[in-house]
Design a protein around this nucleic acid. Sequence first.
DNA 1: GAGTGGTCTAGACCACTCC
DNA 2: GAGTGGTCTAGACCACTCA
Lengths: 247, 247
Amino acid sequence: MIQETPSAPSFSPLYRQIKSLILQGLESGEWRPGDAIPSETELAVRFGVSQGTVRKAVDEMAAENLLIRRQGKGTYVASHNDAEQRAKFRFLRLVPEAGGLESPSSTPLECWRAKAGQEASRILSIKPGAPITIIRRMLKFAAKPVVIDEIYLPGEVFVGLSLEMLQNHQGSFYGLLESQFDVRMVRAEERLRAVAADRANAALLGVAEGSPLLSVERVSYTYGDKPVEWRRGLYLTTEHYYQNELG
Amino acid sequence: MIQETPSAPSFSPLYRQIKSLILQGLESGEWRPGDAIPSETELAVRFGVSQGTVRKAVDEMAAENLLIRRQGKGTYVASHNDAEQRAKFRFLRLVPEAGGLESPSSTPLECWRAKAGQEASRILSIKPGAPITIIRRMLKFAAKPVVIDEIYLPGEVFVGLSLEMLQNHQGSFYGLLESQFDVRMVRAEERLRAVAADRANAALLGVAEGSPLLSVERVSYTYGDKPVEWRRGLYLTTEHYYQNELG
DNA sequence: GAGTGGTCTAGACCACTCC
DNA sequence: GAGTGGTCTAGACCACTCA
């Protein structure tokens, strides 16, 4: 007989406890995105363990993109406002067919408030009827519209989010959520399908009604696997493709 | 000034050298998929380093899905014939919308030999005109056709591959390549697009011509980043979706 | 109980960054 | 030169598997 998921883990190593202590520091905001956390030796003293044990905890968190190690400098809390290019394409997997390297630009279209329906409440695990904020926006590569996004956010987490805020902001959407609302996206799950363009979206993307589009449904999670974003994107994939690595 | 990719790495730690020694053992066939490799202490003695250094090398290779550690038993060479369910869905990301758990079944349609054109030779890094083997097959979930695959393989690597062999084989396609041709797929890159079904494929999938399909182009690599498979799949995504995790 | 991987420690030294 | 993360070692003990 095989036990796939034993209900009670028989053993929890020390470094995992350290890991969850550091996680608490991230969730509580003791260390914010972009900050340096204390050095390994400091943390070892604080938690009363050896430096090697702290190291193993930090190693795992670095592998999960929660922390970033920089030799000679220190260990930092990962941020969507980081300068590295790879950080920017961690969540947007759309790549131009021809080697153009220029980043896409975001154009907010609408932003309004509504009440959560059944589906939104289930996915965001909020009460049906709870306030949500809905955003529609367009992504352009080299001035050509390529993506239409519809984004659903729990209203209680992102109070005050407005179209003006989106329009005035420089940088990535997740960077804004992080710096303005203290919510950092940690991971996401996507479901991809091929669909036919309806009339409205076809017009926005400049293609014929019924053209095939890539539908990308995404649920994003912050610390503690809490879902805080549900979005659906329609990608025009004639001159771009969705890139994926199977490890 | 920032050096993004220094041409000469200034330093190569011991555990990476150990790692590449173990990799040699895999490439040379000293340890085959499914085999156990020697214990950490044995390897430490053989390579003249401490057990901790071997451990770090093996850790990385386990993270890359090249090796599988089993506490109390040993460390094994990963195989596409492994029993674990997660191993089977590492390369097929298509999931049924409704919770059905049954695995897809493969139906080989055609298998013939040809000469590599320009594109195939570039992607598989073989000479133009070199022999290749082309396979067409269908994947069915619950007896319904859902995927049409066209697979291009370098003929010199897979000599003797035939339609009969495909028809008689139980288990996954990569499992067959591994046990019959000693080639293990290690990683792959995929490019996804939405396309319109042509008449032939529409008929095979039982949909109208022009229906949106998910086009999945894949290049697979074996040890040493050598490309050994190029395939294009057309996925019907009305009752299934392509699942992806953004870490 | 023997053998395997997994954890934890303590200490030495190296590579890198910044002052 | 001081401080950081990165490597390497040696040894002790724990958890798990199998005979």
